[in-house]
Amino acid sequence: MSQTYADYRLSQLDQLEAESIHIFREVASEFEKPVLMFSGGKDSIVMLRLAEKAFYPAKIPFPVLQVDTGYDFPEVLSCRDSWVDRLGVRLIVASVEQAIADGIVVDDGKTSRNRLQIGTLLHAIEENGFTAAFGGGRRDEEKARAKERVYSHRDEFGQWDPKMQRPELWSLYNGRLHEGEHMRIFPISNWTELDIWDYIGREGIEIPSIYFSHQRSVFERDGMLLSQSEYNPLREGETAAERTVRFRTVGDLTLTGCVESTASTIDEIIEEVAVARVTERGATRGDDRFSEAAMEDRKKEGYF
């Protein structure tokens, strides 16, 4: 008997997809007002693809929320618009600039836009009454994330308490909330960076062009290659030069570094990622470098 049934096996990518679709459907069933947090990066695009599959041929039954730092890459915004158009989903943009203007967050000139996103995001969640917010966090990204649940509880202040996490067993998720609380949902928790690329390649889906090798005027700061732009004025001693680069993550362009690369196809990117010796966040994210617990601290406050 067992020999016959041995043929019934799912590849690991199919297993991950099945698990994520299960999570999307579970949340859509049990939460009153879910929302998908969309950064425009590859992880949130994979989330959109999985949500599309979970409810097809119906439309995705929740809106998409993007926190606009004002420093977003134009290539990312145009990719976002193309996805939103194709899927016919409602897009809500929460603007950091607007939040500053409205006094919701305070721009003291020292705090990064990345950090100001937290207040902007929490305000948008509260204002819209969202009870569940899907995020593209993966457990392989960072060690605080490695311990986070798929359903990650947030109190009335939007805070994460790592010591009070609910046990999460089998595929039985507990979505109970009190008034004013919400749940962060991480449907791609078990995916690795390589899985994401394999899936993008397999599905043939559109991602922002900055993930592929291109010419860009860049300069070095804190060991990272940053994009030259009006938001990113050169400091003394810094000089910009044209290089062949691509981005491994996308975020606030004042903080997101690129890497020198000639990878111009998904296959070439996969090849590059497979032999990479530095994590994507370590290589290209200024926001994670401040301390050993940088991510844990931001998550406690309500970060993605």
Partner: peptide, 10 residues
């Protein structure tokens, strides 16, 4: 290229 299509999971 490294493809995971045929890989399984433990």
């Amino acid at each position: 290229m490294t493809t995971q299509t045929g890989m399984d999971l433990l």
